[in-house]
Design a protein around this nucleic acid. Structure first.
Lengths: 225, 225
DNA sequence: AGAAACCTTACATCAGGTGTAAGTTCAAAT
DNA sequence: ATTTGAACTTACACCTGATGTAAGGTTTCT
């Protein structure tokens, strides 16, 4: 059963939404404290977030941005203002749907089920600069094609992506690839890194793995025409 | 550059749409004969179809259904009536967006670019009953996880999916897997079919490969709780 | 019962991913 | 400029998993 997290400060509307969703076969969790919203939401591990824009402390837009940065959960935005600017804003932030209140029950339900359908099987896709990586199979999607990375190269790319832009130490990579218990051959890692770089280059990916002397490695975007 | 196919019978609106899209970096092709619309559309190999619902001969709904049956091209529906029924109908048919006229330029453009983004890298996904198959890597998406099929099993599943529901002869499968020129060992095919069935069963897929005595094989859905 | 279509299992082979080894290049610091 | 350790490269041997082969078993129709 799919879990939907409802983020709405008006208690009445919240309960109406909850019961409607529950009646239609969803598992609902609600947010009623509004300080660290985006983390709270993710703790529930929802399959979809139904988000009101007009909230007390934080702006709904900010929450949406946070959610999309920290995860790839789909977000449906609900608002009482019918404002084009809001809508453009929301969709640019990566929101998946935008609906104005008063909402028609059927319309909302259909859009929710549509968004969920759209995300089917996409839950394990990690987003990188200009490509997607399936965390389970290490299938790499780029430029309308797809390739399967060898397991080790996939794992390295995965750990680098999870720290997008940040340096990752050899140790961390090693742990990811072979597990923390195994003996680590510095060189084995080196060889696999070289292989990953070669693969990425041959795919014309818009980023590379860059060594940071004495520290580790990081992903950097390579801009080119 | 992405190609958009505009399907709209009113010449004025059509030209307005076309020039707007072209000004925003799309390659536009228009439909102006309305007899065998869905085939005509697909001949242009569009990345997206912008479809008016109120057309002379055929209903826009029917076209949408045809398009979705024959391909996986995204469809954005445009209509002058703001009718909930229409919208529900359209979305159930698999339309990707639904917009009412008069449309706001920015809103339409944003939705189009959103839909295109959403389809990025998905162009090679074949849809089966309850799962998706990547035609290039034979990565299989089911139940929120993914698995890589061995090449031969993938190819067999692919050719079966392309003829969803229909029987496919051994010969056709063989051609797909080994190419028409190769010598065909009946048994090799048999073994690979068995392997595919085993794989599918172990994944709890909601369908199986069924032999049709003297003819070939087909995919059938297995209904179960 | 018998034959033809279809299926199963086990095994040998082969390709591609992997770690190892041995060496080369690079870049910062003296 | 020389040195030194970090970062990289290449070649090779090994191992895993996908594949084809072979031999035999089951089903289904007459």
């Amino acid at each position: 059963m799919k879990r939907i997290c409802v983020v709405e400060d008006e208690v009445l509307v919240r309960e109406e939404l909850s019961s409607m969703l529950e009646n239609n076969g969803y598992n609902v969790s609600v947010i009623d404290k509004f300080d660290d919203v985006s983390s709270d939401i993710l703790k529930h591990e929802p399959d979809l977030v139904l988000l009101d824009i007009n909230l007390p402390n934080l702006s709904g837009f900010q929450i949406c941005r946070d959610l999309k940065n920290k995860s790839s959960v789909p977000v449906v935005i609900l608002t009482s203002r019918d404002d084009l600017k809001d809508e453009l804003n929301a969709l640019e932030l990566g929101a998946d749907e935008f609906m104005t209140k008063p909402y028609r029950k059927e319309r909302l339900l259909l859009r929710i089920s549509n968004v969920l359908k759209r995300y089917e099987g996409r839950s394990n896709l990690l987003e990188g600069p200009g490509f997607l990586l399936d965390r389970l199979t290490y299938t790499l999607y780029i430029d309308g094609t797809s390739v399967i990375l060898p397991k080790n190269q996939g794992k390295i790319l995965e750990v680098l992506l999870q720290n997008r832009g940040e340096e990752v130490s050899r140790q961390e990579i090693s742990d990811k690839v072979w597990g923390t218990s195994e003996f680590i051959d510095e060189n084995a890692l080196q060889v696999n890194l070289t292989r990953l770089k070669k693969t990425m280059a041959s795919l014309n990916m818009p980023c590379t793995v860059q060594a940071v002397r004495g520290v580790g490695y990081k992903i950097v975007e390579t801009e080119e025409k």
